[in-house]
């Protein structure tokens, strides 16, 4: 049996790496991927707690998080396509004006 706090530590590490990627990457698409990484890290904590407490609420929440992530990916990638079309670049430092 793997102790629950091992999973929580792994979840924290993955979340931290997601934060690092979010701050350091310059490409809009990669920044978006690091958000997905952070969501995945939180999902792992949810499932670990669900198993530790013997309740399924955590797993139901994970399903909702996945649905929201899918919706977010669809809208976010639409926005990224718009940015690329208007700026001819995917670098976030070029996106420094609110007006597209």
């Amino acid at each position: 049996m793997v102790p629950t706090h091992y999973y929580l530590i792994l979840s924290a590490i993955l979340f931290g790496l997601g934060v690092v990627a979010f701050v350091f990457k310059r490409n809009v698409i990669t920044i978006f991927m690091s958000i997905e990484l952070m969501l995945n890290a939180v999902n792992l904590a949810f499932v670990a707690f669900s198993q530790a407490f013997g309740k399924l609420d955590g797993q139901v929440f994970v399903l909702f998080v996945i649905v929201v992530a899918a919706a977010e990916a669809a809208v976010g990638l639409g926005i990224i396509i718009l940015i690329a079309r208007n700026r001819q670049s995917l670098n976030v430092e070029r996106v420094n004006l609110l007006k597209l």
Partner: peptide, 9 residues
């Protein structure tokens, strides 16, 4: 998982 996340960066 950790190697993949580091590689992502």
């Amino acid at each position: 998982a950790v190697i993949g996340a580091v590689s992502l960066i």
